[in-house]
Design a protein around this nucleic acid. Sequence first.
DNA 1: GTCTATAATTAGATAGAC
DNA 2: GTCTATCTAATTATAGAC
Lengths: 195, 195
Amino acid sequence: MARKSGSHADITGPKVRDAAERLFARHGYAAVSMRQIASEVGVQAGALYLYTKDKQSLLFDLMQSHLEALMTAWLAEPRGDTPGARLEAFTRFHIRHHLDRPDAVFIAYMELRNLDPANFRVIEALRKHYEDVLEDILRDGAEAGVFAVPDTKLTTMALIGMLTGVNIWYRASGRLSRDRVEDLYCEMVQKAVGA
Amino acid sequence: MARKSGSHADITGPKVRDAAERLFARHGYAAVSMRQIASEVGVQAGALYLYTKDKQSLLFDLMQSHLEALMTAWLAEPRGDTPGARLEAFTRFHIRHHLDRPDAVFIAYMELRNLDPANFRVIEALRKHYEDVLEDILRDGAEAGVFAVPDTKLTTMALIGMLTGVNIWYRASGRLSRDRVEDLYCEMVQKAVGA
DNA sequence: GTCTATAATTAGATAGAC
DNA sequence: GTCTATCTAATTATAGAC
């Protein structure tokens, strides 16, 4: 479907999202101006409003699509048939997916404060939905007697915190390969739940 | 030492810091205006500049004093005489200290992006200094053969991430007491390092 | 679809009265 | 030590030309 020349909506739209994601992650939502985003895209500030209602919607859309893509990707992941295998699958998936999208992850964790209340509730529900994935695995394992988990909810939060922390320190140029990081985290997670 | 009436520097100075800490933690450094801080303190915006050079110094001072207080408090803590005891002491100290100062902790982790480059280097060095405490404990335990830690640096970052994550989910009004949280994290940490 | 121009608001920081 | 007033610059968002 060729468009009229001069019509770049299909290109500019995604470019706006990409630029916003990069800039929000680097400098923070509140510190980034619409003019900065426009400049990064290569248009004037006014043109941005063809692709987003306002700055808040830009933030919300980025977070929502990140969390929805996270759930969708997990549901498409091959799942193990024992709690131990499922926990390993989750650990590897979480690290891989998060290291692949550092900017989106960073925004989803750091910019919750800048969401309007109504948007905040939507994002929190999506995040909770994802955390429930791990909680279900831990509960299944505990009930089957293969995990030693005295408090399922606390362990869920502790492990999520540990795994998501990878994004804070991991550098591709660093000492460890991604596979090695996955392996080491898997080992720690399994030991932590007493598997 | 009584001062002239109308001279409230001893009171207003700390109030400025407290208000800034609360507001930065709640809404983010970039989203908070000097007028908001002044309003919270009960003075006009211009009066703030008697107590801080500018907004950036306010942020830097908060982060610096938080991290210095953290190190000082750790050095005053009774230290165990085995790696296992030291790891437990560190775990309990970290959780206790962090849950006592949620706003300062939040700022120290979330506002690194908003530091001037020179200030950033100072804060990063202080943070590294604190992380080295845990790394030293883990290395000692590994060398003594009481911890099974294949990669000391990675384990340090993983545990710090897990422990600091407490501040994200813990609520005093929630299901678990602080002592119970400490106990459960201690147990997980010990298992994770194979102690 | 994009740009230019602009409206309306707000920001950080300072000067000078009291 | 604080307030009032103000300067300068930047902000989001919109209107209308092209």
